[in-house]
Simulated assay, not measured.
Amino acid sequence: MKHFYRAIGILGFVTILGGISPAIRAESAPILIVQNSAEDLFNSALAKSEAGDIQGAIADYTEAIRLNPNYAKAYNKRGIIHGRNLKDYPAAKADFDRAIEINPNYGDAYYNRARVREFLEDKDGAIADYHKAAELYQKDGNTNDYQDAIKHLEMLQE
């Protein structure tokens, strides 16, 4: 009988009509707290970006960065959205600057910052970044990206 009362206390009081009393149900219902990791938010942002939910992607990248302030990939991806989708080149550059500050060997961040510097008419900065990106791509054996960075570098130097 003791277990019966414990079960009623946990499950709530069943009324004559067969429902659970709302007051008791509210007290006894478990509260589910969902916490996303920075990586979960990063992946969510990628999916949102691909689906065209630009503001949702930015929100998720921003939250991932809040959870992990040294998440260079999240800064880089958010910078891409700021530049490509929103044409907010100063915000994009700030994100690429931070990604490079976190990881000075991040070729994609140098390449992306070079693209933004072109839009900002900072030719010398773009040349320096394409050069650094090419150097890092070559070091990593990333032939396609190396050749792309060299192509952009040569176009700027003409």
Score class of each variant (00 low, 15 high):
residue 92 A to D: 06
residue 26 A to E: 15
residue 104 P to K: 08
residue 30 P to W: 07
residue 134 A to N: 07
residue 132 K to T: 01
residue 87 K to D: 04
residue 34 V to K: 15
residue 80 I to E: 03
residue 42 F to N: 05
residue 39 E to W: 06
residue 129 D to Y: 01
residue 33 I to C: 12
residue 117 R to A: 10
residue 95 D to Y: 03
residue 123 K to Q: 03
residue 83 G to H: 01
residue 51 A to Y: 03
residue 103 N to L: 12
residue 45 A to L: 09
residue 135 E to W: 02
residue 24 I to R: 15
residue 68 N to W: 02
residue 69 P to V: 03
residue 98 R to A: 09
residue 95 D to K: 07
residue 123 K to I: 13
residue 59 A to L: 10
residue 82 H to C: 07
residue 36 N to C: 15
residue 121 E to P: 06
residue 11 L to W: 02
residue 127 I to M: 01
residue 32 L to A: 06
residue 14 V to Y: 09
residue 125 G to V: 05
residue 109 A to W: 08
residue 112 N to S: 02
residue 74 A to Y: 03
residue 134 A to K: 06
residue 83 G to S: 11
residue 142 N to E: 09
residue 40 D to G: 15
residue 81 I to S: 05
residue 138 Q to M: 06
residue 88 D to P: 03
residue 41 L to P: 03
residue 97 D to N: 15
residue 48 K to M: 11
residue 66 R to D: 11
residue 135 E to S: 02
residue 41 L to M: 00
residue 132 K to Q: 15
residue 93 K to F: 12
residue 32 L to K: 15
residue 84 R to I: 03
residue 29 A to K: 14
residue 25 R to E: 12
residue 134 A to H: 03
residue 9 G to P: 09
residue 71 Y to A: 02
residue 49 S to T: 02
residue 140 D to V: 00
residue 118 E to A: 07
residue 3 H to Y: 07
residue 82 H to S: 13
residue 64 A to W: 03
residue 13 F to N: 07
residue 91 A to H: 08
residue 27 E to F: 03
residue 114 A to T: 00
residue 93 K to Y: 04
